[in-house]
């Protein structure tokens, strides 16, 4: 991965193609939640997607991951179109995601939560027992990594919100996605945990995973990301390194209304 930092949002040929959208639009009634959004994320990097509340970040996320069908436009991943594919196909293509308000399987144990994400290989594999030693070892390894391995037998609804966030992240990792989209990983968690999540993201990125992170915590965004895309009213208005974006007058206008 030899992608260099880009001055602006471009689609250079020398960059390994990762996740990109062209003219993506989605309306709810009369509201254009995502409006002709053309975005290219840098493969192998930590990308951030920021913008004021209601700027369409989560809808954009949902269109990209197949949870919502976009009205028009294209989504491509590694050069292949993935527009309007079902979420499970997109997951199989290598894109994992978390949800804004942390979604886990509340009445399953922590370990069972992890085992849902085991990639099935063919019919026989699906019909075999779900508690394979290799899978359980991998699940435990990931739980240890996020720091909740001692909770594996607890029901997921009984653990704290911060722990649920970590479980969700570990569960996504179980699918072994190349690209991980996190919707507000720092939302509603304490500063210590934000630090832990940030460290994890950095480590996982160093191992070659691409991140696309929607986040309001500017400190986290600016310290963590290589590339920042700023959304306003459903479309990107600026993109670049954290420093560039911070100084952009359009960004200041969108955020502060000056």
């Amino acid at each position: 991965m030899t992608a260099t930092r880009h001055e602006t949002q471009t689609r250079d040929v020398d960059v390994e193609p990762g996740l990109a959208t062209v003219g993506l639009s989605k309306s709810f009634g009369g509201v254009r939640a995502v409006d002709d959004a053309t975005v290219t994320f840098q493969h192998g990097k930590i990308n951030a997607l920021i913008g004021p509340n209601g700027s369409g970040k989560t809808t954009f996320f949902n269109c990209v991951t197949g949870m919502i069908r976009p009205d028009s436009g294209e989504v491509t991943y590694r050069g292949r179109p993935i527009t309007r594919k079902s979420p499970n196909r997109i997951a199989a293509a290598g894109i994992g995601r978390s949800f804004q308000l942390c979604r886990i399987f509340p009445r399953m144990t922590v370990l069972e939560n992890m085992l849902v994400g085991v990639k099935p290989e063919g019919l026989a594999h699906r019909l075999r027992g779900s508690r394979h030693a290799a899978d359980i070892d991998r699940a435990r390894e990931l739980l240890r990594r996020v720091g909740i391995d001692h909770l594996e037998h607890a029901e997921a609804r009984d653990i704290s919100y911060g722990q649920q966030k970590l479980l969700e992240l570990a569960g996504v990792l179980m699918v072994e996605p190349e690209t991980i989209m996190l919707d507000e990983p720092a939302g509603g968690v304490n500063p210590a945990l934000i630090g832990r999540i940030g460290t994890l993201v950095r480590e996982l990125n160093a191992e070659g995973r691409t991140f696309v992170i929607v986040e309001h915590n500017m400190e986290m965004v600016m310290s963590l990301s290589d590339h920042v895309v700023v959304f306003d009213r459903g479309r990107p208005i600026a993109a670049g390194t954290p420093d560039e974006v911070q100084g952009d007058p359009r960004v200041l206008e969108a955020y502060l209304g000056v």
Binding site: M67, G96, F105, P106, M108, G171
Partner: peptide, 14 residues
């Protein structure tokens, strides 16, 4: 069982 708990989430995990 994951579908029973949260269908969208299950789908997002493949």
């Amino acid at each position: 069982k994951a579908i029973r708990e949260d269908e969208d989430k299950a789908q997002s995990l493949g």
